[in-house]
Design a protein around this nucleic acid. Structure first.
Lengths: 208, 208
DNA sequence: ACCTGAACACCGTTCAAGT
DNA sequence: ACCTGAACACCGTTCAAGT
């Protein structure tokens, strides 16, 4: 039983049926095996999940040299958007990352490429570390909160907008005023904040 | 059995023993009752969790008038830090928010005060909505990823730093270079990104 | 050596039966 | 009306027993 087959089957279950549907029993059954067999490949469910998470990062294949060539600002933009897309493509799986800082081989490679681009553009190590940490957590924080359509998650945006629109105008005048613009589509929200971060970084470097 | 007692007991369990320790059985037992009784007050575990989440937002008591008086930049800084502290105080509970946009009364009040301050400073409704959405998700994204010390979560920072320091210098030269600055303490990371966002917003308004 | 059925100690949720 | 024990259909994990 190849380890790779276990991991990709697990990711498929999460994609198709939601994060909660991934149980050791379901997975074993889909593989035509028993739960105990899985424990011969992974110490625990947590270890299995870590592999599934890193598999998602595998879809992010950024060329280190190209990244260095495009300048730090465009490099960060590219990394952020590519990461976000990779994680959003597996919306159900994203929340599996909530617990641990990803340390799998693919996550390590991504971090390396990004840090190299920053150092190459003259960022001091400390600033590079802060910048990557903030960017990564920004992307992960967004991806985690993207609600899958699978399990009984959040009501859809139309319903949510109605909730804000129908709030008591005496208690919530400002909320009602902006209700037409809420909720902000997650992609817009993501890009808006990302550009703010990049603009802030640019001015920070101009001042230095 | 007052509903308030159920919610505060539930939050206490999460604080003390981690999010996973909150089961309907454990909660019922702690209350000297049965699980079926809980279902007479809440439709499901999810509904209970929503109340626990809003209870955390209850600790964020910001005066709307004071907020409006301090200008949008300081107002956003205050809201973000106060929210972050309230959520970090219940690190184990923060991840309970991952699924849904908080809509409880305390969360609604917080949103209203913040939006009112932005509109009062001349933000157009759309920009106000985008700004609040981005800020809120930024804070929640951070708070969710703060790893509790309870359940068997991430290794501590010292161990994590050692992992980066001992990475292969041929494969990961940039990572090893900045290893001394990683991992970035979460509070520093939070403030760093928050100031970038505020700086970006300030320049966006200067241009307009 | 590698695999697995069956068990252990848990879950969320429901419902008939009690007061 | 309000509460609850016991059950149902699940979990993650382990281990003695099979091949």
């Amino acid at each position: 039983m190849p380890l790779e087959r276990i991991v990709s089957t697990a990711l498929q279950i999460v994609d198709d049926e939601g994060a909660d549907a991934l149980s050791m029993r379901t997975l074993a059954q889909r593989l035509g095996s028993g739960t105990a067999t899985l424990y011969r490949h992974f110490d625990s469910r947590t270890a299995l999940v870590a592999h599934v998470v890193d598999r998602m990062f595998g879809a992010v294949d950024l060329n280190g040299d190209e990244l260095r060539a495009m300048g730090w600002q465009q490099a960060l933009r590219t990394v952020a958007h590519t990461m976000f897309e990779a994680l959003a493509r597996h919306r159900n799986a994203a929340r599996l990352m909530a617990e641990e800082i990803p340390l799998g081989p693919n996550a390590m490679a991504l971090r390396e490429h990004c840090l190299a681009a920053l150092l190459g553009s003259g960022f001091p190590p400390r600033l590079a570390a802060h910048t990557f940490a903030t960017l990564a957590r920004y992307v992960l924080g967004f991806a985690i909160q993207v609600n899958g359509h699978g399990g009984g998650g959040q009501r859809d945006d139309a319903h949510l907008s109605a909730v804000f629109q129908s709030a008591d105008p005496v208690l919530f005048p400002a909320t009602v005023t902006v209700a037409g613009s809420m909720p902000v589509p997650i992609e817009d929200e993501f890009s808006f904040g990302l550009e703010l971060l990049l603009s802030g970084l640019a001015h920070l470097r101009d001042d230095a």
